[in-house]
């Protein structure tokens, strides 16, 4: 195993089914709302201000690599935390989170790899309800289901977010950073000081 850089730098990889909203989530976080103009997220490094201190995040998308396991493995290497995404309007994507993505990241990065569960396109929930599209609404993922899954796999947190409206986007990355800090006792006190004020 390669030596890890000893600095407060956290590599976060966003995984999940194709078209479940990974790229938009990342672009929305990095490009501050102008993200929906782009179909591709290019890996980048950003500073994330946690109040008392700043953590450097290295962000990665696996978009387009859904069919290439060997490529994904290269992207997963040295990841510090994962954001496992599903589409709140497609129950199947949550199933895949359970049976494909979570087992995959755990087998590649260890059972204890910190992750958070994120339901993307939360705005659709609203729309489907408002328009009484019952048929489609049946496919909505219920919070109970997610809660159970999160508890079973030991997710650090779970969120629903809407990248389209920038809702909870920052929180997704804040939580995944904290999930990582939680595993690093040496850093935790230093970086979270003042976070819970």
């Amino acid at each position: 195993m390669a030596a890890r850089s000893p600095f407060a730098r956290c590599k976060i990889v966003v995984v999940g089914d194709q078209f479940c909203g990974k790229t938009l989530l990342l672009n929305s976080f990095v490009n501050k709302g102008k993200g929906h103009e782009f179909a591709i997220f290019e890996s980048c490094v950003v500073d994330f201000d946690l109040g008392s201190s700043t953590i450097t995040l290295s962000l990665h998308d696996i978009s387009g690599q859904e069919d290439y396991e060997s490529m994904r493995n290269l992207t997963y290497a040295d990841a510090d935390a994962f954001v496992v995404c599903y589409d709140v309007s497609k129950r199947e994507t949550l199933k895949n989170a359970e049976f494909k993505w979570l087992p995959e990241i755990r087998s590649k990065c260890g059972e204890d790899i910190p992750f958070i569960l994120v339901g993307c396109k939360a705005d659709l929930r609203q729309i489907l309800h408002n328009n009484d599209l019952h048929k489609k609404a049946l496919d909505l993922v219920s919070i109970k289901e997610v809660e159970r899954l999160a508890a079973r796999f030991g997710a650090y947190a779970f969120f629903e977010c809407s990248a389209k409206y920038g809702r909870n986007v920052r929180q997704v990355f804040e939580a995944s950073t904290k999930a990582w800090l939680d595993t690093r006792e040496d850093l935790y006190a230093y970086f979270t000081e003042g976070l819970y004020c």
């Binding site: 990095v30 709302g33 490094v45 950003v46 500073d47 994330f48 201000d49 700043t54 920038g166 986007v169």
Partner: peptide, 14 residues
């Protein structure tokens, strides 16, 4: 209330 206002991109990522 821009949620992401405190991220600073020091340099262009590309």
């Amino acid at each position: 209330h821009t949620p992401d206002s405190s991220i600073t991109l020091r340099t262009a990522c590309t």
